[in-house]
Design a protein around this nucleic acid. Structure first.
Lengths: 149, 149
DNA sequence: CACAACTGTATTGCGCGCAATTGGATCTGG
DNA sequence: CCAGATCCAATTGCGCGCAATACAGTTGTG
């Protein structure tokens, strides 16, 4: 059978990236079980907590690299859970502003220690985590750059 | 509002990892459109191409960190596309062996240049890619270690 | 041999991701 | 003004991921 070293499973970067992301997501999901959030719901709350003002759906999407097809149902579930409220922007009725409710804000302290615990359990050294982050940021820049090109 | 630096979106590793994995998957999916494979179908074919013998469903799952709940429908679609054949192992009827068909083997050369092209388009330097891979492998080790613990 | 424990795969149910489409709101040129 | 282009979110359709469950096949034990 012909040899294709560039297709060697062990030589490719895509599989470790793919597997690592799913693995970390799974750990977060386990840790979040107690508060009833999935991982995508959690990162959506992170984006909303970070913002000074209620974000539009599109602004959340920019921060998370997700589109409305994914976010709309996520936000509806968060709304059903009483963590956010979605309302049309009166100044521009095309936009939907997502406000964090008091209950949504209260959740923040409940999940505050999760990241540290998850990463600690995986045994990744802090400087390795920083190096990994820098490389991933660079990768994301490359993704964005070649998208717009 | 209380400050939770450990929840700062920009300080976390999980979001870049999550976004980068989805971004790379999207690029591969675009590149694979011509041959009619999705990214999960592609990595499944990679695992099968790499192996000397037909793998069982479980062996594919080990290599990709996926379980039968995900793989069974993927393998059925690959079978429907004529790229693999699934048959029960006569020595142990619980197992299902996945054989690559001639057509499945022929596909290998058609996708051989995809990885190089995708990574080149993202502009990631080779040594950065190697460093990234090493860190991701370490992360995967940490995930496995704390799972079995 | 009987029978319980275990293994390997398939099925089910639900929540994403994302491309493509829809439809209402806003902007722009004439 | 007003008609076409543009923008924003929602909807639709399909393919994952994965936990939980089901179930046939196998192994270990007396």
């Amino acid at each position: 059978m012909a040899d294709y070293p560039q297709l060697d499973l062990d030589a490719q970067l895509c599989l470790p990236l793919y597997a690592a992301a799913r693995g970390v997501t799974r750990r977060y999901t386990e840790a979040l079980g107690g508060v009833g959030l999935t991982y995508p719901q959690y990162v959506t709350m992170l984006a909303l907590w970070d913002a000074a003002e209620p974000l539009t759906v599109g602004e959340v999407g920019e921060r998370l690299h997700l589109d409305s097809g994914t976010l709309t149902p996520v936000l509806k579930r968060l709304e059903a859970a009483g963590l956010v409220v979605r309302r049309r922007d009166s100044a521009d009725e095309r936009r939907v502003r997502v406000e964090v409710t008091e209950r949504g804000a209260a959740l923040r302290s409940e999940v505050a220690e999760i990241p540290e615990r998850v990463w600690h359990d995986m045994g990744l050294a802090v400087d390795d985590a920083l190096r990994l982050r820098a490389l991933l940021d660079q990768l994301l820049l490359g993704l964005d750059a070649s998208t717009s090109a």
